[in-house]
């Protein structure tokens, strides 16, 4: 597979990889790095890529694993990504305005979900995969996917209604 052909294969789903990475890693730069890393790994595997029937699914799984590993090593070295992001939340006016914005509020809520639920909700509600596909990607049973998705959605709803009732939004 030449470089051009590889790009043709990869281009349609590179945004999906990026969005998945961003969902897990939160930071834009880290998500971009992760996406590049995954694409490079894929390129280096290029010669046996024909063996994978579904390159997109394979790349998604790679991205998931890569990001989870990254998060794990972060926790191990006591660098807490999520909290570093909140550190300045009370700071500038810009951030306060942003925090009031209801869309980024939903994003914050999703950041707080457990990783599994984040993944399931991202794959279903953003990328619109069906349950079978998600089950394969995450190596879960379709039924577990459903349960996890329902939990994630309900958790988001709960936080959202809390906020709505306070009348902040």
């Amino acid at each position: 597979m030449t470089q051009g052909e590889f790009l043709d294969v990869v281009m349609p789903f590179k945004d999906k990889l990026y969005r998945l990475a961003k969902r897990l890693l939160v930071s834009r730069e880290e998500a971009e790095d992760a996406t590049q890393e995954v694409l490079l790994k894929l390129w280096n595997k290029n010669s046996d890529m024909g063996e994978y029937r579904n390159i997109e699914a394979f790349a998604m799984t790679m991205t998931k694993n890569f990001c989870l590993d990254k998060l794990k090593s972060k926790h191990a070295s006591n660098l807490k990504l999520v909290h570093s992001n909140y550190a300045e939340a009370g700071g500038g006016l810009q951030q306060q305005v942003e925090a009031l914005d209801s869309l980024s509020w939903v994003e914050r809520i999703m950041e707080e979900l457990p990783e599994q639920q984040k993944l399931v909700m991202q794959l279903r509600d953003v990328e619109e995969y069906d349950f079978e596909e998600i089950a394969t990607l995450l190596n879960m049973k379709p039924n577990t996917v459903r349960v996890s998705l329902s939990r994630a959605r309900k958790a988001v709803r709960e936080k959202l209604l809390e906020k709505h009732n306070y009348g902040i939004g």
Partner: peptide, 13 residues
């Protein structure tokens, strides 16, 4: 969230 795009380059060595 569906519209977000990867803007980085794909530097294939």
């Amino acid at each position: 969230a569906k519209k977000e795009q990867f803007t980085g380059s794909v530097p294939l060595k």
